[in-house]
Design a protein around this nucleic acid. Structure first.
Length: 271
DNA sequence: ATGGTTGGGGTCCAA
């Protein structure tokens, strides 16, 4: 059976439960990775998710900010989190699935919410940008030391970086805008250069086709202006690439009532 | 170059 993995920066999970229900009804993801849940552990809407079939839930929460969760219809063997930059932020959670769920071998799904990085693209002047770069450095070191890509791994989430020229609406205009600056794109490339990783979305839809997963709230006519960026990602260990069948970026979700500024991204993996 | 909007928590910060 093919399994569908979805990633979605939900921007307050409590507020968006009607949107999650709508997405689940139409797309039936098996494994749903959420970022920016913005609630404490006890406030996470586990009951309605369980009622929708997501009986296996792992949460890394903090009050008010950030927070990530994995809700799955298929059981996972274990889940774990890692703290980055010793800041106490809830920006990572992972779940390891037994052989038979996502192929013949165990597969770990990592769900990330990488720091946005503030406005000024200079780590000397902007501690948030420094945090973002440090987070990426730590992630690179971890993927190397633990051989994340050598095993069977899926890495999803809001990485807050649009690495390619066609991942933004205007490459030149955004070169000094945090999310598309050469310095952070270089760091991200180092993360994924540290192992044999495949950008699942670009593997299926290569450049120069433009792909966006986020449109700012600050643009009243987001659809007409279409000044988007591809901030949300799904990467696979290269050994999983043969199982990759399809992907979808659900752009229409940006137009739903009281939307997140990010839309769901899904891939289908054959086992 | 600037300002635009949204969410959470609480009278401002993060995105």
């Amino acid at each position: 059976m093919t399994k569908r993995i979805a990633t979605w920066n939900i921007n307050s999970v409590r507020l968006r439960m009607p949107l999650i229900e709508r997405f689940v009804q139409t797309h039936q993801p098996d494994i749903l990775c959420l970022q920016e849940i913005k609630c404490r552990q006890a406030e996470f809407p586990s009951a309605p998710l369980t009622a929708m079939g997501y009986k296996h839930i792992a949460i890394n929460a903090q009050k008010g900010y950030h927070g990530v969760a994995i809700a799955s219809r298929v059981p996972f063997e274990k889940s774990f989190t890692r703290e980055f930059c010793q800041k106490g932020d809830a920006r990572h959670i992972a779940a390891t699935f037994d052989p038979g769920v996502l192929g013949a071998e165990p597969v770990t799904v990592h769900n990330f919410y990488i720091p946005a990085g503030g406005d000024i693209p200079d780590p000397q002047l902007n501690p948030k940008f420094e945090h973002k770069l440090s987070f990426l450095d730590e992630l690179e070191a971890w993927t190397k030391s633990d051989g994340l890509a050598n095993g069977k791994s899926v890495l999803v989430g809001d990485l807050n970086i649009a690495p390619l020229e066609t991942d933004v609406w205007n490459h030149k205009a955004l070169l000094k805008i945090v999310s598309h600056t050469p310095i952070e794109v270089d760091r991200l490339q180092r993360v994924f250069g540290a192992g044999p990783w495949v950008d699942a979305i670009r593997h299926l839809v290569p450049e120069p086709e433009r792909l966006f997963t986020w449109w700012s709230y600050r643009s009243p006519n987001w659809e007409a202006a279409n000044k988007g960026r591809r901030l949300d990602h799904i990467w696979l260990s290269k050994t999983l690439a043969p199982q990759l069948k399809t992907m979808e970026i659900l752009k229409e979700a940006r137009g739903w009532d009281r939307p997140s500024d990010h839309v769901p991204v899904t891939v289908d993996l054959e086992d």
